[in-house]
Design a protein around this nucleic acid. Structure first.
Lengths: 192, 192
DNA sequence: AATATTATGAAACGTTTGTTTCAGAATTAG
DNA sequence: CTAATTCTGAAACAAACGTTTCATAATATT
């Protein structure tokens, strides 16, 4: 027998995520957040909680979106190698055209070292990406699309950790050609 | 005709660097810094400047140390491949045993996106690491120590960006074996 | 329609932030 | 020794921080 929450919580989380993504955890103030979310701080504290809790929810939201993307790609009818190559090309596009870097990577270095919950969420996200790559590599090997003289688990680990450096490179040099060349080498390693 | 600065400036920079390295730029307060440096904030502002200026000096100091290390390794009498492999193994040790992640990487993601001077310093540092790798790879190819069917500039770029992901992986999973296996694969790519 | 309950907005909370001030201690040059 | 200059330490600064309070508005249930 009382009123309901007025604002759309998932939309508010989305808006907060965008701010955290761009500025990072520590450089984002609560006013930055409530401005973007268009809610009062009392509403924030009544529903979601404090800044840390909000950040956890935002990181969770960020990784949820990625999870859905990987699941959709794995369900594709195309050949595993085609899905893998397509994914790499889209990753390059995101790095080159995206205004901001990857929120998962930024949060891993800035927050995961101090916040156990954020670390768990990002570790789970990383594990899913590994699984995504491992599935595609294994299937490609079984179908004879790529060479199979290396352990697919090792390749998945290696490739999974590779993107991170591409983000750093693009932050420092803003050279799209450099990223594209590395991606081509990346794919060549598998196929030749 | 007046007194001199009392504290050792380079020692103070070193101490400040350690704090920034561990906590990151935004999570570090000026009191954290003056406590570690064991100086009063007035002395800090009189000699070095504000927080941003101090951070720039710390990042510069961090990259200076790396520069010296690369120069020393390049001057080695051993074979280029041996120097390269040795460097990779030591990089793995640093990742696995180091309490904190790489300050250059952390700063690239947290600060370089907003601070042009930090970005320039880190870009120059990255360029030097590229040059270090390129020199060793080129020489190894010329001596016939490794395969030469790929462009050494491309390999240097690719390898240079690879470490960053290893740091992220270790933050999230703390699995030394994983890092070691990736390093072995890394070396295998060159030699076989 | 009355009532109990909850969400909201504005203001205020005590801390902490980065930075500045300034009197006095220290030191060098004449 | 004197005097001019500079460094230091403690205190204070306003602004911004994350968070809480509370009166009021809103609504679902009876």
């Amino acid at each position: 027998m009382a009123r309901n929450v007025e604002f759309d919580e998932s939309l508010a989380i989305q808006k907060a995520m965008e701010v955290f993504w761009k500025k990072g955890y520590n450089a984002t103030s609560l006013r930055d957040l409530t401005d973007a979310m268009q809610i009062n701080s009392s509403s924030l504290y009544n529903t979601i909680g404090d800044k840390q809790e909000l950040f956890v929810r935002c990181v969770q939201h960020y990784t949820d979106i990625r999870k859905q993307d990987w699941e959709k790609r794995l369900a594709s009818k195309r050949s595993p190698l085609a899905v893998l190559v397509d994914y790499i090309h889209e990753a390059v596009k995101v790095i080159i055209n995206g205004e901001d870097s990857c929120m998962a990577v930024k949060s891993a270095f800035e927050v995961a070292t101090n916040d156990e919950r954020v670390k768990q969420i990002l570790a789970a996200d990383d594990q899913r990406c590994y699984q995504f790559l491992h599935d595609l590599i294994k299937k490609s090997m079984d179908k004879g699309e790529i060479r199979n003289d290396e352990d697919p688990a090792l390749l998945a680990d290696y490739f999974n950790s590779t993107w991170t450096g591409w983000y750093e490179s693009f932050i420092l040099h803003r050279d799209p050609v450099k990223i594209k060349r590395m991606a081509e080498y990346f794919i060549r390693q598998l196929t030749k």
